[in-house]
Amino acid sequence: MEIIKLSPDDEVGCADAVAVDSAGWKVDCPELVQHTPRSFANMLRYGWDLEPPEAYLARDDDGTAVGLLVVDIPRYDNTDKTWLDVKVHPDHRGRGIGSTLFEYGEKLTRDLGRTGVSFGGIDLPKAKAFAARHGLEQKSVEVNRRQELVGLDWELVQRMYDESAAAASGYELLKLTGALPDDMLEGMVAVTASINDAPKDDLDIEDDVFSPERLRAYGEAQRKSDRTVYRVVARAKDTGELAGHTVVAVERERPYLGEQHDTAVSRDHRGHRLGALLKSGMLLWLREAEPALTQIDTWNAESNNHMIGINEALNYHIVARFLDYQKTL
Rank of each mutant, 00 (worst) to 15 (best):
H35K: 13
V88T: 15
L101G: 00
E103V: 13
T82A: 09
G105D: 03
Y76S: 15
R38V: 11
D85K: 07
L108S: 00
K81A: 14
V86E: 01
F102L: 08
K81V: 14
V86I: 15
A58W: 01
L68K: 00
G63L: 12
Y46A: 03
G120V: 13
S140Q: 15
G113V: 11
S99Y: 09
E137W: 01
G98K: 05
L57F: 05
G113R: 01
D49I: 02
S118H: 11
L44K: 11
L136Q: 08
Q138P: 15
L112G: 12
D28R: 12
R45Q: 09
N78L: 03
F40N: 02
L57V: 10
D49L: 06
T79A: 05
S22D: 13
F40Y: 08
D60C: 06
A58M: 12
D28F: 14
V33W: 14
G47Y: 02
V66R: 09
V88R: 07
K81T: 14
H92E: 03
R38D: 06
R93W: 12
V27Y: 01
R110G: 12
D49G: 12
R93I: 13
G120D: 13
V66N: 05
R38Y: 02
D61Q: 11
T36A: 02
T82P: 04
R95Y: 02
Y76P: 00
T82D: 10
K139A: 11
A23P: 12
D28H: 14
M43G: 00
R133M: 01
A127V: 07
P52E: 04
S99I: 04
T36N: 10
D77E: 08
H35V: 03
A23C: 07
G98E: 10
V141R: 14
P30E: 11
G135I: 00
D72A: 12
L57A: 02
D60N: 14
D61V: 06
H134T: 06
A23H: 12
D85H: 10
V33Y: 11
N42I: 05
A23M: 13
R95G: 00
E51S: 12
E106C: 08
E137V: 05
P90L: 05
W25C: 01
P52D: 00
F119A: 02
N42E: 02
Y104I: 10
T100L: 13
D85N: 14
M43Q: 11
N78P: 07
L32P: 06
G120T: 11
E51W: 03
